[in-house]
Write a protein that binds this DNA or RNA. Structure first.
Lengths: 347, 347
DNA sequence: CTGAAAGCGCTTACAG
DNA sequence: CTGAAAGCGCTTACAG
């Protein structure tokens, strides 16, 4: 480090105020208790000395001496501030910033992590992870070993998004797709639909299982369902729909829904008048030939805020008692009515 | 701070490897010199002990002991990650992230700064400013007193955007609008324009002076110019244009250009066939009745990258020698041809 | 080649 | 009510 000429310490303040360094520290941290009782006069003297100087406590020293730093780490497996990732990270980062503001915390982005196979590494020789009181983990996929190690080390952290990469009990805040899926099916049944096809990507992620579980659940039994794993080639969709006599297609996500609609129309099926379509995921901004796609809305900012709140709880709680906390939280996605699920027209 | 049960230190590693803690530190930091010469065998033993453990150096302790932290602070006077500010900050933050990655630095966002009169305060009792090796300052307007204090304290920092709030020599990276303004005028002259009106907002910011200086400079003398300060009411524009016999309007920014076009058209003047229009500012994304607005493009990401590079130089250089550095840098805005400045049609 | 010791600036028992 | 002292985990002269 270059010299720090202007650096002024507690000792200096103590000298000016004519007290001990200990007293300065006490005043600074508002320590008041059975043992300490600093008269207002002394207190004022110290405070004035601080005001007149440019003194600020060295956070490194504070931290080393065992105090919180009010710094929350933010780790993403890929760049968080690039234009491409803004779509996904933007609302989350916004929520994190607002949460940090209310908690009075600064945010440390671990942009120095070495990149390997296109992903940043959380643990590495020079990680500044420990400078933070705790850490928020962001990313579509995470490394199971990282999660386990964090849990092992009792480092306070919260992952955004449901996690099951590992057996360890990973604290997270995720989205519940099961409840709104059932809600969506309810609505479809009300509109007269009796048979549906579920088109998914054949992935085995937590949320994919979540959706599939809901689609196949007894709660959805009022609707006869057929499941179709979409390969690149969606030409089979129309055939499946016809064979099943379905009037509704549920697609795993909005992009898939768009592709499905294209395939259906190519095969002469009308959407939504012939076949209704919905996505079991975020649909804001997605339109099907001018009509708002039916599906869900995910309050991503709120997920982040909730993650920060949970992290704060972990930081404030001794690791031994973490088990008593509710460390795996789900926020339900909202139903987004849209205009692509319409009343069933009798054939 | 909550207990850190898993925390493993250099002393522990030293015990395992059967060496002194000093040696561990030496190995960790690749210290090799006249005085130290650690045999490969010892080195390997230490490294292995580290590998097998989950050891990472405590950054707080490192910092306290006098080393760089590879942490760069980022301060904004208002929220940086909100949807509204993303338009302005997005490209800058992206540039900062990329710069930090290449420098191997982490980024500390000072989101904890108390808000006063709607603006965050840079200096306050618990500022973690000093945890960073240096700081990037972002914002349309900054506090002159803050800038002065940073300069006084010899704290390495760089402001993004040209600065003249204070007499102190503030390090900054800003945009040069003068050169491209002259370039734009050259182009207009080539296209046969002889008379122009400059419409501005009557502000007295550095960049406003910059543009106005260029418009009124001898380099622009080939074009007869009239200057008009736009109040809310732009109805005067058409009259001024007619009175001056102008075939070109230069507006201070793209939004003003749009308003001007509206006013001209209302008064029966055709744009661009009757009157050409350009903005002396960023025009990407601005269209005038389907035609791309002529003006500039500002590579904001590059401004940020340059600011980070300058900051790194400051950090690496002793304050006494900062004067020898080029600490006030301007990047020229690019000319954006657009389609709203066209060949002059003889009346 | 290696380690004991001092010191970075702070906090917190502990002893007056 | 107040201060001397130990200690946080690390780095770097310094002395073997």
């Amino acid at each position: 480090m270059t010299a720090k000429p202007g650096k002024i310490t507690q000792r200096e303040i103590a000298r000016i105020a004519g007290v001990s360094q200990t007293t300065v520290s006490m005043v600074l941290n508002d320590r008041e208790g059975s043992n300490v009782r600093i008269p207002e006069a002394t207190r004022a003297r110290v405070k004035e000395a601080i005001e007149r100087s440019t003194y600020v406590a060295d956070p490194a020293a504070r931290r080393l001496a065992g105090l919180d730093n009010q710094i929350i780490g933010v780790f993403t497996y890929e760049p968080a501030l690039s234009p491409e990732s803004m779509d996904f990270y933007g609302p989350l980062l916004n929520g994190i910033e607002r949460g940090a503001e209310t908690l009075g915390c600064d945010l440390l982005f671990f942009t120095s992590s070495p990149v390997e196979d296109g992903k940043r590494k959380l643990f590495h020789r020079k990680t500044r992870l420990r400078l933070a009181d705790g850490c928020i983990l962001l990313g579509q996929e995470m490394d199971g070993a990282d999660l386990e190690r964090l849990v092992d080390e009792r480092f306070p952290f919260v992952a955004v998004g449901r996690r099951d990469e590992t057996a360890a009990r990973v604290p997270y805040v995720g989205i519940d797709y099961a409840a709104p899926t059932v809600g969506l099916i309810d609505r479809a049944v009300e509109l007269g639909h009796e048979r549906a096809v579920y088109v998914h990507r054949g992935r085995d992620t937590p949320t994919a299982r979540d959706r599939r579980g809901a689609v196949e659940s007894p709660a959805a039994d009022r609707l006869v369902r057929t499941t179709l794993a979409a390969d690149e080639d969606l030409t089979a969709v129309a055939g499946t729909v016809r064979a099943a006599g379905a009037t509704l297609v549920l697609a795993e996500d909005a992009f898939l829904a768009e592709d499905v609609v294209h395939a259906l129309r190519t095969e002469g099926l009308d959407v939504p008048d012939g076949v209704s379509v919905a996505a079991l995921a975020e649909v804001r901004g997605h339109r099907i030939g001018g009509r708002a796609l039916t599906g869900f809305h995910v309050r991503r900012g709120q997920v982040a805020t909730e993650a920060l709140a949970l992290l704060q709880q972990l930081i404030m709680t001794a690791p031994e008692e973490w088990d008593t906390l509710d460390t795996q939280r789900l926020l339900s996605a909202d139903l987004e009515a849209g205009e692509t699920v319409v009343e069933r027209r009798p054939a």
